[in-house]
Design a protein around this nucleic acid. Structure first.
Lengths: 343, 343
DNA sequence: CTGTTAGCGCGTTCAG
DNA sequence: CTGAACGCGCTAACAG
């Protein structure tokens, strides 16, 4: 008969050390008020038995899990990977662990994970909301601290850490119009009902309308290939002078389309976008873009969450805006030489 | 006096519905063997009270947490983001949640998270090992199913899902030598004691030595800027004909260095590397690289883990090799036109 | 088909 | 300074 090898409990340690359970508990947690000799005995027993406290039992008892839940809309996207890294950094500083979820931009998956997280007794939740309605949150309103990142939830009034999408897009579009004199500019969107995409469109639209120019949007869906296909169509019938990609994937899609038909950026057509990325400053054309700082966004969001969890603080501001930075490089038509030592 | 608003328990539900605790438990779990009417009463009570089962208490009782732990070495790296996505995909299919950790390539952090995971009673662990020794695992040897990804752990004999780094680097180096006739090729490494980097170096070395060429390595550390600085130094004193970047960051660093001194890739110098990335096929120079499939690696690793967890299967193979794919584009000197419709 | 009772491993009164 | 007993919320015998 094979005896089930189960891990030693605090009781085993107590027996082995010849002390009571409480004493062991003290050594592990308080570490004070215990004689040095008995403390040593207990530590030896723990070592010998390979004892590890059971966090489940402890959490059940003290009603704290030291765990937060994080729902990311797409972890393969390096933008969100950086958000995650920022969150992790402040979580571990607060001695908290993270239960992770990838919603895949699917609201049903997000909802399911939210339920799991509640059942697992997380002490706070950070969400990058998927498109759709977050009204499922109403059921347990105010039950648990939450912070949203990058996008404002829909049908739910929550704290959100984001950038000024409208302003960023407005300024970059204005640059295209005023500095380079472009008059036909296409906005390449993914889905306009994703919060930041819509806001970026609004910024683009505002700049266009102020200059009495015609607004043109194309929805390009999610992948580089999708964006490429969407742009191909406008390259012949009514070729614009510039394309504004709503995120880095769409921007790359647009550039890919120009390459496909041997158009050169920015000579034949300009391409700019939201989101900077690591090769934007290295490969050609050097990308003109609105740069965000996702790592900082993650950190900030986590800090707001822990203010609620550990200090029980009430957060008045509902929207925290992290500044963007405009990177003027060559894909808009500017002259860019900062990479070079000699010209 | 503020009454602590704690969530309702199964007992509250039972009382509200006028049945016993066990009946409620049955409705939640078995869902069988219960009269329709009482079932309805219980469901109503659950709805009314906003009851959510406490997974902690359940786990403590049944000794299963339906949770695995994942330690990623750097989640901001999109390669590992894709690994993570693959893991998540099969985890949720098995109805498992993930506790996430980012080790930041720091072995001490990895070790600390491993301890946390054990205390939180995870049923399995996936690790992308940080450089250093994984000997800390010996303490609780065989306690829990584990799978490693991308890199073999050190001082520990574990199952690892990886690619054939040596062969990939060997074939690409051979291509450089035989097709393009380059004779001076520099290998730009991060840290040679990171398992795959060392293996890639071996592949490069083998190809060089077979052709009686001189092996040259530079260690470039972690960022694009680091790689750039490291390459700058060899651009004047003894300029090589080609550079082999050990990963996509070093490859970009090398290209950045060439740009800085107005060298054109591949006309003045060729640059190739390990790891393909999303803009490698879109921006110039189109990158020649050894492409891995990180998503698949994550999926595979998770599948191996769940074979151990849910089917108690013993995994004989210690090394699972996912095939790589060589992408011959233009940065090596090849003619690349696949992107274009007309030439 | 349903109710009672005893733990899961730990922290914490309340005595000693 | 230490030990026994209880309970966190839930499931699993074992009865009824």
């Amino acid at each position: 008969m094979k005896k089930q090898k189960s891990s030693p409990t605090i009781k085993d340690v107590a027996e082995y050390a010849g002390v009571s359970i409480k004493t062991v508990s003290r050594v592990i947690n308080d570490s004070s008020e215990v004689t040095e000799t008995t403390k040593k005995k207990v530590l030896d027993a723990i070592e010998k038995l390979g004892y590890r406290p059971n966090a489940l039992a402890k959490s059940l008892r003290i009603k704290r899990t030291y765990t937060i839940g994080v729902i990311i809309s797409d972890i393969a996207n390096s933008f969100f990977g950086n958000v995650m890294k920022g969150i992790e950094n402040v979580a571990i500083k607060n001695h908290y662990n993270i239960i992770f979820a990838n919603s895949d931009e699917n609201i049903e998956k997000e909802k399911m994970y939210y339920q799991f997280f509640i059942e697992k007794q997380v002490e706070g939740i950070i969400i990058i909301p998927a498109p759709g309605s977050q009204s499922y949150l109403k059921k347990h309103a105010g039950l648990i601290p939450m912070v949203f990142v990058d996008r404002k939830p829909k049908d739910w009034d929550g704290i959100v850490v984001k950038v000024n999408n409208e302003e960023g897009a407005y300024l970059l579009t204005k640059h295209l119009i005023e500095v380079h004199g472009y008059r036909s500019i296409v906005f390449l969107a993914t889905e306009l009902d994703i919060d930041p995409v819509g806001e970026r469109f609004e910024g683009y639209k505002k700049a266009m309308e102020e200059a009495n120019l015609k607004v043109r949007v194309i929805e390009g869906n999610r992948t580089i290939e999708d964006g490429c296909k969407a742009i191909e169509k406008v390259l012949f019938s009514n070729k614009p002078q510039a394309i504004f990609g709503c995120n880095h994937v769409m921007t790359l899609g647009a550039i890919k389309a120009t390459k496909k038909y041997s158009l050169e950026v920015p000579r034949d057509i300009a391409v700019v976008g939201f989101d900077d990325f690591e090769s934007g400053d290295v490969l050609r054309p050097y990308l003109t873009a609105v740069a965000q700082d996702p790592y900082k966004m993650g950190e900030y969001a986590a800090e707001l969450l822990f203010k609620q969890i550990t200090k029980n603080e009430f957060i008045k501001e509902k929207e925290i805006i992290i500044p963007v930075e405009l990177k003027f490089r060559e894909s808009c038509g500017c002259l860019y030489v900062s990479n070079k030592v000699v010209s």
